[in-house]
Amino acid sequence: MADHSLNDMAAGQRASNDPPKMEARNVDVFYGAKQAIKNVSIDVGMENVTAFIGPSGCGKSTFLRTLNRMNDTVSSARVTGEITLDGDDIYSPEMDVVQLRARVGMVFQKPNPFPKSIYENVAYGPRIHGLASGKADMDAIVEKSLRRAGLWDEVKDRLSESGTAMSGGQQQRLCIARAIAVEPEVILMDEPCSALDPIATAKIEELIHELRGRYAIVIVTHNMQQAARVSQRTAFFHLGTLVEYGDTSEIFTNPRETRTKDYITGRYG
């Protein structure tokens, strides 16, 4: 797709009632000589959940990781173009990456609680960022985060137990509580339900609905039904390019691009 079409799609989001929290323009990602992302431009708003869909290996998770510089951890990775958070270039040398990752949290595909108590999993981030002035303050942060993650009533009497002893679905909600605890502005979710059973998946999806509007949320999913259920905006990636981006209802019922229609109707992927 031509550059101007991608930027038109991003401008379409700006023209809506959802001003962008993050803006990406002409982003390329390379791993060594291999180009994984090609000229992607997209806006992420505060009011809508944005879903990235596409076949395996299409670049959706790679692009997600550019939004909080997780690709910095890969020595061969190189990112060009511009990505801003509230207008500030996140790849600027002046950007504090630790602070960036507090503002743009990440929830991974496989739940990864720390080998600590439930309480300490949630308290870890606020403690290292100096967000609590004392134990009472920390207790309040932990409770608020667990409540927002829909977990408080299930764990309030066993906060000293290990986070790794919880069920998979509870562990994933604990990881969401851990991300929330540092008061992020954006939450990135990389296939957060792929390792979970249907009941746990439903709880995570319900949680995403409840968190919408408090945070800008981006979810990568291989499950198109999930994208249709939880998101209001959908971006379809294929072979490292952003093929189409728009309202979820439009993408699924009236896609503009043949490749999008073919993927959604199951002709490939």
Rank of each mutant, 00 (worst) to 15 (best):
2 A>K: 15
7 N>T: 14
8 D>C: 07
11 A>N: 14
13 Q>W: 01
17 N>W: 08
17 N>T: 10
22 M>T: 02
22 M>Q: 13
23 E>R: 07
25 R>E: 15
26 N>M: 11
26 N>L: 06
30 F>H: 11
30 F>M: 11
31 Y>D: 00
32 G>F: 02
33 A>S: 07
42 I>P: 08
49 V>N: 07
55 P>V: 15
56 S>A: 14
57 G>V: 04
57 G>N: 05
58 C>I: 11
63 F>V: 01
63 F>L: 07
63 F>S: 02
65 R>S: 03
66 T>A: 09
67 L>V: 08
68 N>M: 11
68 N>S: 14
68 N>L: 09
68 N>C: 12
70 M>P: 00
71 N>V: 11
74 V>I: 14
78 R>V: 09
81 G>M: 06
82 E>S: 12
88 D>R: 12
90 I>Y: 00
90 I>K: 02
91 Y>V: 03
94 E>H: 11
95 M>F: 04
95 M>L: 07
95 M>E: 11
97 V>S: 13
100 L>W: 03
101 R>D: 06
104 V>K: 00
104 V>F: 05
105 G>R: 00
107 V>C: 02
109 Q>S: 10
111 P>Y: 10
111 P>K: 14
114 F>P: 00
118 I>F: 10
125 G>V: 02
126 P>W: 02
127 R>W: 15
129 H>F: 15
130 G>I: 05
131 L>T: 01
131 L>K: 08
132 A>E: 01
133 S>V: 11
133 S>P: 04
139 D>M: 00
145 S>H: 04
145 S>L: 02
147 R>A: 05
148 R>D: 13
148 R>K: 15
149 A>C: 01
151 L>G: 08
151 L>H: 02
152 W>F: 10
152 W>N: 04
156 K>N: 10
156 K>P: 00
162 S>R: 06
164 T>K: 10
164 T>G: 01
165 A>M: 14
165 A>D: 15
165 A>C: 10
168 G>T: 12
170 Q>T: 10
179 A>S: 12
180 I>P: 02
182 V>S: 06
183 E>C: 00
185 E>G: 13
188 L>T: 09
189 M>T: 09
194 S>E: 07
195 A>D: 12
196 L>G: 10
196 L>I: 03
199 I>L: 10
203 K>Q: 15
205 E>L: 08
206 E>L: 03
207 L>Y: 07
209 H>F: 15
210 E>C: 06
213 G>Y: 09
213 G>T: 01
215 Y>D: 12
220 V>H: 14
221 T>K: 08
224 M>Y: 09
224 M>H: 12
225 Q>N: 14
226 Q>L: 07
226 Q>P: 06
227 A>M: 14
228 A>K: 12
233 R>Y: 08
235 A>R: 01
239 L>W: 01
242 L>V: 06
245 Y>V: 03
245 Y>Q: 03
248 T>Y: 02
248 T>H: 01
248 T>M: 07
248 T>F: 07
249 S>W: 11
250 E>R: 15
252 F>Q: 03
254 N>W: 05
256 R>M: 09
256 R>N: 09
257 E>R: 15
257 E>Y: 14
258 T>H: 04
258 T>L: 10
259 R>Y: 05
260 T>C: 06
260 T>I: 01
261 K>T: 08
263 Y>M: 03
266 G>W: 03
266 G>M: 12
